[in-house]
């Protein structure tokens, strides 16, 4: 069990090392002649106007909230799915009720226009 997850760690480190070596090798091989024009932000040829890191539209927040709702639902449902074969009728009825409540929540969000994108 512990060694199972140890491999994931080894894999992360190995992948990071391999990709890091690739990046370093490329940085040794490639030419490096920076100039002022080259280092400008690539937008449309002229100097950029205004700050990039500005406020963004609120729709993204709303979608993210709906996503969090369903992500948590999924986390709760995965253990149930693993143990599904040994569950009783009553337990499954409860789970279905839980999912239906979430479906109603989705329909409510839909009705309120949270899912509309203009």
């Amino acid at each position: 069990m512990r060694t199972d997850f140890a491999f994931v760690g080894v894999m992360l480190v190995t992948a990071a090392l391999l990709m890091g070596v690739t990046l370093i090798a490329a940085s040794l091989l490639r030419p490096k002649k920076p100039s002022k024009a080259k280092l400008e932000t690539y937008e449309c040829g002229m100097e950029t106007v205004g700050d990039t890191w500005v406020q963004f539209r609120v729709q993204y927040y709303i979608l993210a909230l709906v996503f969090v709702l369903f992500d948590i639902e999924a986390i709760l449902l995965f253990p149930i799915a693993v143990a599904f074969n040994s569950l009783s009728f009553f337990a499954v009825a409860n789970v279905i009720l839980f999912i239906v409540v979430l479906l109603i929540a989705l329909l409510y969000a839909w009705r309120k226009g949270a899912l509309d994108w203009e």
């Binding site: 490329a26 490639r30 030419p31 002649k33 920076p34 002022k36 280092l39 400008e40 932000t41």
Partner: peptide
């Protein structure tokens, strides 16, 4: 080509 292409980091 990828290995030998110049790589710029924008000043900003």
């Amino acid at each position: 080509k990828m290995f030998t292409k110049e790589d710029t980091t924008p000043a900003a």
